[in-house]
């Protein structure tokens, strides 16, 4: 049963990811990205990472895709003829596809042969308590750094999007 769900969800995810790349409309690309992220969240549910699945939907689908849609509609860059791909791009993409297929094949043949079913491995219990314990003991320094990173990102966005009066001639 889990195998069936895995195939359904992964097909859904990969199809929506392909739609992100090959869609002509940018808004449709953003919505396909949303579907792909929801598919990844369902894969997380299959892997017993319920909190991460919820976070995925909240942070990515809720905030990131909404921001993308906002910017797409703000800039309004639809239309215009789309140039066809260059021949060198198509050729290199084909070579890269063949390499990818060969790599996946050899990985499948000789990679880590973990065929254990998930039912045999007891879930480690990714509960909120475990997360809190890890985040505030082992990973305390990364938490601080990430907090600082968020502060810097906020400052950077403010600097980037604010118009400074005296600096126009420098630009």
């Amino acid at each position: 049963m889990a195998a069936l769900f895995f195939y359904i969800f992964s097909t859904f995810t990969v199809a929506s990811a392909l739609a992100v790349v090959f869609n002509k409309n940018t808004v449709a690309s953003a919505l396909a990205l949303l579907m792909s992220l929801v598919g990844v969240a369902s894969i997380f549910v299959l892997l017993d990472a319920f909190l991460l699945a919820a976070l995925m939907v909240f942070v990515y689908a809720g905030a990131v895709v909404a921001l993308f849609l906002f910017i797409v509609m703000l800039l309004d860059v639809q239309g215009g003829v789309r140039k066809p791909f260059k021949k060198i791009t198509i050729a290199s993409s084909g070579i890269a596809l063949v390499l990818l297929a060969l790599g996946l094949y050899s990985f499948w043949k000789s990679g880590a042969q973990t065929t254990a079913e998930l039912g045999q491995i007891v879930p480690v219990g990714a509960t909120l308590k475990n997360y809190g314990e890890l985040l505030f003991t082992t990973y305390l320094l990364p938490v601080q750094i990430v907090g600082f990173l968020l502060l810097i990102a906020m400052l950077g966005v403010i600097v980037l999007s604010k118009k400074f009066e005296g600096l126009e001639d420098i630009k």
Binding site: A49, V59, V64, L67, A126, L135, P142, L149, L150, L160
Partner: peptide, 18 residues
């Protein structure tokens, strides 16, 4: 791995904003 994904989510959110 779960905690790493936690951090990746945070960094991705900051990256998208910038």
């Amino acid at each position: 791995g779960h905690v790493f994904v936690f951090f990746i989510l945070t960094v991705a959110a900051a990256e998208v904003a910038v």
